[in-house]
Simulated scan of single mutants.
Amino acid sequence: MQNYLEFDFKISPLYPWNEILMAELIEIGFDSFTEEFDGILGYIQKDIFNENQLQGISLLQNNDVEIQYSYKEMPNINWNEEWEKNFEPINIDDKVLIRAEFHESVPGMHEIVIQPKMSFGTGHHPTTHLMIQQMMDMDFQNKKVLDMGCGTSVLAIYAKQNGAADTLAIDIDEWSVENSKENAVRNNVELNIELGTAENLGKEKFDIILANINRNILISDIPTYTSVLNNSGELLLSGLCFFDVDDILEVCEENNLVLKKKLQKEEWVSLLLNKKEVLF
């Protein structure tokens, strides 16, 4: 068991900077987070923490956001065991249940079984809930699918369970990649899982792209997504607050994408877009 440091980051304004900060902290070794009303709690093993690396992350130098932090050493406990104890199953519209192996099955519900390790995408965040809600009404049969920022690969697994063909899942976090591999086996689906970012994408084309990340990364990567999305293909986005929608739709319009359906839960939003068919 490792000794951990708990960092309490106060962030103003909170959105979308909390998601961006978590992405930057992962790069320097932070491996789990808890979202607070005014910031985030971040956890890192004491023996790998480097103060200079923390001070060097770009967001701490950004004048658009104010971030203050303090930290303390945590007791020497098994964090995965603690995480599992507090993991509750997620019921989405009484149709889809995301649960761990130690939860009871619910007859009549579509189930995704995951091991709740300390990685993103367990399903508790409203954006994952919104993505699954949108996916319920989508046709995945024999479609080639890409899941960007896959976390535990809940979305990729759900796509495969609903008939998707080749499915690629990509995440920047090594822990997420390993957990995704375990979860694919656990749900008896075959996924191609890679460590990386949108830079991994080449000439391979997809019928459906799922991206539950954050505003800034989406704005940066939407042109890349569009370039690998087949004509009339679908792009499903979340990780967005309601006030991000206009900026995202502006970028989408510039990239030949048309809004098909929008869902909102609390302050979070999911957008389903179609790529216009281009005739040459």
Rank of each mutant, 00 (worst) to 15 (best):
C150L: 07
F280I: 04
Y225L: 08
V185C: 05
N212P: 07
C150T: 03
N256R: 09
N183E: 00
A165K: 13
M148D: 08
D139E: 14
K181G: 11
E24F: 01
L191V: 06
E111W: 03
E51M: 11
I67V: 00
I11Q: 02
E267Q: 14
M109P: 05
A211M: 00
L259F: 12
M138K: 10
Q141D: 10
F243P: 15
Y225N: 06
E88W: 10
S232T: 11
A198G: 13
N50I: 15
E81N: 13
K143Y: 10
I67E: 00
I40E: 01
F280M: 08
M138N: 15
I112H: 04
E82K: 14
E254Y: 05
K10Q: 08
F49R: 14
V113Q: 12
K260M: 14
F206Q: 09
G149V: 02
L272Q: 15
S227Y: 02
E190D: 07
T34H: 07
Y43T: 07
S119Q: 04
D173Y: 00
V145T: 14
N91H: 02
T127H: 07
N76G: 12
L168T: 05
C241N: 09
I90A: 09
H129I: 06
E204A: 04
E277V: 08
F7I: 09
W175N: 00
L279S: 12
K203R: 11
E253V: 11
F206C: 04
F37L: 11
L5P: 12
E178D: 02
N188M: 14
L229W: 00
L130M: 08
K181R: 15
S270G: 15
E66N: 11
I92C: 09
K261Y: 13
L259P: 11
W17T: 04
G163F: 06
E178V: 00
R215W: 04
K265L: 12
L210S: 05
L237M: 01
F87C: 02
K46H: 08
L191W: 06
I67L: 04
Q133N: 10
L237E: 05
E204C: 14
G151H: 01
D8Q: 11
F30D: 03
M1E: 10
I213N: 01
G123M: 07
V106W: 08
K46N: 15
N18V: 15
V251A: 10
M135K: 08
L271D: 10
I222H: 03
V106Y: 13
N80W: 00
N86S: 09
I40W: 00
I157C: 01
